[in-house]
Design a protein around this nucleic acid. Sequence first.
DNA 1: CGCCATCTAGTTGTGCACAACTTAATTGTG
DNA 2: CACAATTAAGTTGTGCACAACTAGATGGCG
Lengths: 181, 181
Amino acid sequence: MAGKRYPGGMSPTDPAAAAATASEEDWLRLDRQICFSLHAASRAFNGVYRVILKDLGLTYPQYLVMLVLWERGELPVKKLGEHLRLDSGTLSPLLKRLEAAGLVRRERSARDERSVEVRLTEEGVALRGRALQVPRRIVAATGCDLDEIRALREHLDDLTAALDTAAAEAMTADAAVPRAE
Amino acid sequence: MAGKRYPGGMSPTDPAAAAATASEEDWLRLDRQICFSLHAASRAFNGVYRVILKDLGLTYPQYLVMLVLWERGELPVKKLGEHLRLDSGTLSPLLKRLEAAGLVRRERSARDERSVEVRLTEEGVALRGRALQVPRRIVAATGCDLDEIRALREHLDDLTAALDTAAAEAMTADAAVPRAE
DNA sequence: CGCCATCTAGTTGTGCACAACTTAATTGTG
DNA sequence: CACAATTAAGTTGTGCACAACTAGATGGCG
């Protein structure tokens, strides 16, 4: 390991800070590893889905939308966004493309003209048949068995919950705390 | 859970296929859950980094690049791309922005004019000092201890390796196999 | 030497994520 | 009823990921 130098104009101001800084150097190295792993894993998954979904003419986010619609049949953009944690800025153009592909229709709700109902076309429903093979191929690609997958999913959900909480707190804390000395 | 109908024009052709299809319905449901978990976790991480990195004026991918440069000091775009698994299509504009921000310089290599050396400016080196606090805040946000983080990292790396292999195979298989009849 | 295959960056085009904003409909309140 | 606050969808602008392509440099081979 390549030694702990303090590059450039940056150096600790007192012995106590020096100890603390050494520890933070370790964390910085660890962070590099975690960042990479996470980012790489995320993109690797995306890549596998991309390859497999190409047959269906769907991107990964489009597949996510279709999965919801296949389960729920029809729902307003708002609800769709809540399920997927995506806002209209992402969903509007995506849905427009799905509509252009003939998989969904969008209609203003009669009861509330602000709302837009998204529903599958026959073609969209039919696509589900071809999509049934996707999960098996994904699972095969991971090389994990179902229990491992399930465990990973739970781990990820815990992490997401923690991160969401922390992000919310960090945002309010940003206003309160003068920010790391 | 709304019963297992075979939507649209899709129906099994024989009893064995019916059983297989029922199982694939389960997988489709599981896939929905995994997709969501993974996608949500990825974006949750991104969100936390976004909040924390805003102080430094960096995006998450820019931070990844800076982490490499802080460790290596200087290297050609090609090497940077190998470390981060990113191609020039992503890196070129990103590096241009880092250069505009005054954090890096790009210079054509004298020895090989195809290559561009990326090196930190003084400002870029100095930013490292402010970045030292980032990992601790990220780890805190996850609510995990270091061992958990390390375990997660290893799990993700295994997954990435498996997925990369599978993606490569799937691509060659795509050419060989007539495609899921 | 001359030419072609290969390699490195960079460019272009598509699609997603997200922040900030706009528009139009609805709801709540005086 | 009128008007302000809220809500839903859409739009705009920035940045990233990736595929496909271009331009220029390099290196090997006849």
